[in-house]
């Protein structure tokens, strides 16, 4: 996207989650997306076996944010040998919760007429950033002050050629909202908020060399009452800024 325009939420490229050789010819690659507030698992399913596949179904193990299929996996026609089909599975966040390691890990079971197969994948936590995540400015200041220093995590993003406005626009496309911007001694400091689907708020401070997109390092500080999410949030923030 061009500088100054919102660019939409970041969607990672599809990767192979279940190789055919581990699943009697069934190959699944996929990614996760948030489109207009709806979380989706987007799948490419290929039949690399010599017989027809049918009767597909999917189930998730309990996971950190209660992700669960919001409906059945819709593959309405049998899949012939060498045939590929794209499927979109809308997800809800009201399923059973169990803390996973890493936090964004998802264990999946897929069944067809041949057998049941299992795989793990990791979702970008940014798909859980909700559209109403812009915190009130007064609440932000109070919350920032209130969260103890031990719950602050610091990170660095290297080789990021964005000025603060471009960074702010890009992040807003993924529901990371800028609340205030200040320039201090040649550095732009962006104060930002994120709200996860389970109601956890993350506060961010981004430092960018003012007016200098060739400067390549960004400093990120994250404050959260549930600091175990900070690492995952940072990974998503970095992916959004670099893509």
């Amino acid at each position: 996207g061009s500088v100054g325009m919102p660019t939409g939420a970041y969607i990672p490229p599809k990767t192979v989650w279940l190789p055919a050789m581990k699943a009697k010819g069934l190959e699944i690659s996929g990614t996760f997306a948030r489109r207009a507030g709806v979380i989706q698992m987007e799948l490419t399913i290929t039949n690399k076996a010599m017989s027809v596949m049918s009767d597909f179904a999917i189930q998730f193990n309990r996971n950190s944010f209660g992700l669960a299929p919001a409906g059945p996996l819709q593959i309405l026609t049998p899949l012939g040998p060498n045939q590929t089909i794209e499927a979109s599975l809308p997800l809800s966040t009201v399923g059973p919760v169990m803390k996973m390691e890493p936090l964004n890990n998802l264990q999946v079971a897929v069944k067809n007429n041949i057998d049941v197969f299992y795989f793990s994948c990791q979702y970008p936590i940014s798909m859980l950033f909700v559209e109403d995540g812009k915190m009130d400015r007064q609440v932000f200041l109070a919350t920032w002050k209130d969260i103890p220093n031990e719950h602050e995590s610091q990170f660095q993003i290297k080789d990021c050629h964005l000025n603060s406005d471009a960074a702010s626009n890009k992040l807003q496309g993924s529901n990371i909202f800028t609340i205030a911007k200040r320039t201090v001694e040649g550095q732009d400091m962006l104060y930002q908020s994120i709200k996860l689907t389970n109601g956890i708020w993350v506060l961010a401070e981004l430092r960018v060399q003012a007016g200098n997109p060739t400067y390549t390092d960004l400093e990120v500080s994250l404050k959260c009452r549930a600091p175990e999410v900070s690492q995952c949030v940072f990974q998503s923030l970095e992916a959004v800024l670099k893509n």
Binding site: L141, W144, R182, V184, E185
Partner: peptide, 20 residues
């Protein structure tokens, strides 16, 4: 008036973060 206060508070926050 409240807006001015908040603007100022963010400036103070940024300053304090830069010179702890």
């Amino acid at each position: 008036e409240l807006e001015d206060g908040l603007d100022e508070a963010f400036s103070r926050l940024a300053e304090s973060r830069n010179n702890p």
